[in-house]
Computed example of a mutant assay.
Amino acid sequence: MHTVPDDRFELPGNFGPGSVWADRTGERTLKGCNQRGVEIPIGHGEGEISPGELLKLALIGCAGMSSDANLSRRLGEDHDMRLWAHGTSDDEQNRYLTIAEEVQLPLEGLTAQEIAAVVTVFGRAVAAGCTVERTVAGGAEVTHRVLGTEEPDTPQTGQA
């Protein structure tokens, strides 16, 4: 299991818990990695996942994890759940204007009141606990810096 990148480049000073990295593997393709040894091929080709798909997966993954404990209390520890995220980027603005999330849960046999409670619990859990959604909705500041080109205290900002 790889817990740090190979030594082609020096580790940045900010490297630590929560750091991820991506290595170029070819034209417009990367291999995304985390410190637990997970590798994800990033691109638009066969067997690769696009950055937009990763964004949508991060959103629904966080929603599912944030709501899991609360839903387990209502639906049982072994309940099924499938989350979906839909949306395509707007070509003119080069960004996603809307990402629609949907969740499928086993609601058969529940009363209308119990279903309403599940919907409320899910929504509250995601609103309170989904760091990814809170970050996206809050418009997080993103900075960019090319290491080795300036002092570490003066990050370059802008679009990539």
Rank of each mutant, 00 (worst) to 15 (best):
H44A: 13
L97C: 08
E77D: 15
M65R: 11
A117P: 07
D68M: 06
V132L: 10
E27C: 04
R95N: 08
V38Q: 12
Q35Y: 04
T88M: 10
A85P: 07
Q93V: 15
E77N: 14
D80Y: 13
L105A: 02
I40N: 07
V121A: 12
E101P: 10
Q93K: 15
V142I: 14
A58R: 07
F122H: 11
V118C: 05
N94G: 13
I115A: 08
T135S: 12
T131N: 15
W84C: 11
V136A: 00
A85H: 02
K31D: 08
E77L: 12
R73I: 02
I40A: 09
N94Y: 15
Q35E: 10
M81P: 09
T131G: 13
R28P: 02
E102H: 05
G45I: 00
S66C: 04
G43C: 05
I40E: 04
H86K: 11
P17N: 11
E48F: 12
T143D: 10
G129V: 01
L105C: 03
G18V: 09
A127P: 00
P51F: 00
D68Q: 12
T111S: 15
F122S: 02
R124P: 01
A125E: 02
A100M: 13
D68A: 10
N70R: 15
P17C: 06
D68G: 08
V119G: 05
P51H: 04
V119M: 12
W21V: 01
G138C: 00
G45R: 06
T25M: 05
G64S: 12
I115M: 07
L83I: 11
